[in-house]
Amino acid sequence: MEHRKLGSSGLVLSEIAFGNWITHGAQVDETTAHECVRAALDAGITTFDTADVYSETRAESVLGKALAGERREGLVLATKVCHPVGPGPNDRGLSRKHIIEGCEASLRRLGTDYVDLYYAHRFDASVPLEETMLAFADLVRGGKALYIGVSEWTADQITRAAGLARELRVPLVASQPQYSMLWRVAESQVIPACDREGLGQVVFSPLAQGILTGKYLPGAEAPSGSRVTDPLGKGFVDMLVGRWMNDESALRAVQELKPVAQEAGLTMSRLAIAWVLQNPSVTSAIIGASRPEQVRENAAASGVRLEKEVMARIDEVLAAHIERDPAKTG
C-alpha cells in the first residue's frame, strides 16, 4: 500500500481508503463488516471513511467496534455531518448547533476522542458560511477534529470556505467528490479550485457503483448478490449511475475495456481504481466492500501506474458516455 499527502497539509493517507457507506449496519452483518475491516488493515489501508447518516448512524458504530484495539495514531479516521440524523429541525444541516452536537455523537459511536478528518457532507445554503466555518474552527481548536473537508461542494463554495478557513486558521484540506472514468464532473472546476486552495481529493465511487467492474452485462439480469439486487443498494445505484445502468450502449462500452485491462495485466476493478489515482490531485480512492476478498482485490490497485496509451484508450472507448458537466456537482 502506497501513501500520499493530502493537499498542502502534512496529513498522509493510504492511496486506498475503506468506506462503509450502504454496507455496514445495513447490507452486511457485523461479523462480515469486521472481516472486511480486518482485510483492509491487512492490506495496509490506514484511512477509513464513514458518516453519521450512513445506515442511520449504525455504520459509525460498526466501524468503531471493528477498529477497537487498533493503534489510534496509526489510523486516519474520517466522518461527516450535514444530512438528517433525527426528526428535529436541528438534527441536520451545518448550523453551529448541529455541527458541534453531531461531532460529539459521532465520536461516541466511533469510540474515539477525535476524528482526523471531519467533512461537511454537503453545502448548506440556509446557514451563513461564517457560522459553519467558525463551528469547525472551534472543533479543531478543541481537539475534536484535526482537519476539515467538504464533500460535493462547488468550486465557488470551496473558494469562499477556503478564504474563511485562512482567516480562522482552520486546516481545510480535503474535498470528497464522486469521481470515476465515467463521472468526471469535478475535473473542470472543483479540482482546479482545490489545487489553488490546497485541498486534496479523496474520491468516492471510483467503480461507478460497480459498473466499471464489467459485471453488469447489456441485456442481462444483474448478477445475484450485486448491489442492484438489494432494495437499498438499488436506490443508491439508480441515483448515482442509473443513466448508465439503463443504457445498453454504455454497458457495451464498458465491456470494451476488458481487453484494455487484460493487456495492462489488471482486473477491471483495479484498472478503474488505478485510473482515478493517476490524477495527481487525487490523494485517495474510497472503496466499499461486502466481502473481504473485494477489499483485497481493490486494494491491489495501489501503486499501479498506467501508460499514456492505456489512458488514451480508455477515453476513446468511453467518450460517448463520460459526464463532465460541473453543474451536476452535488
Rank of each mutant, 00 (worst) to 15 (best):
A220C: 13
A174S: 15
L207V: 04
G242N: 12
E187Y: 03
P223K: 03
E248I: 09
K234V: 03
G143Y: 01
P223A: 11
L172T: 04
S249T: 14
G198V: 10
L182S: 07
V173Y: 03
T229A: 06
R227V: 13
V190K: 03
S205L: 08
R184F: 01
C194M: 08
Q255E: 12
S188D: 09
V170F: 10
D195L: 14
S151Q: 09
V228C: 02
Q255I: 08
A137E: 08
D138R: 13
W183H: 14
G198E: 05
W153M: 04
P192I: 06
L139A: 01
L164W: 12
L146V: 11
I148E: 11
R252M: 14
E152R: 08
G142A: 07
G214N: 06
A161G: 09
A220Q: 15
N246G: 15
V173A: 12
L207S: 05
C194V: 06
V202P: 01
A193R: 08
G219C: 07
G242Y: 11
W153Y: 12
C194S: 09
A174F: 04
A137C: 12
R160M: 11
Q189P: 02
K144E: 00
L240F: 15
E187M: 05
A208W: 02
S180N: 07
E248A: 15
I191W: 03
A250F: 07
K234S: 13
G200D: 05
G210D: 04
A162C: 07
V140F: 02
A162N: 07
Q176W: 07
R160N: 08
A162G: 13
Q255R: 11
G163T: 09
D156T: 11
P231E: 13
L182I: 13
Q178G: 14
R160W: 10
L212C: 03
Y179L: 03
P177M: 07
Q255P: 13
L146P: 03
R169E: 15
E197S: 12
L257E: 02
A155Q: 08
L139C: 04
S224A: 15
L172D: 02
V173F: 09
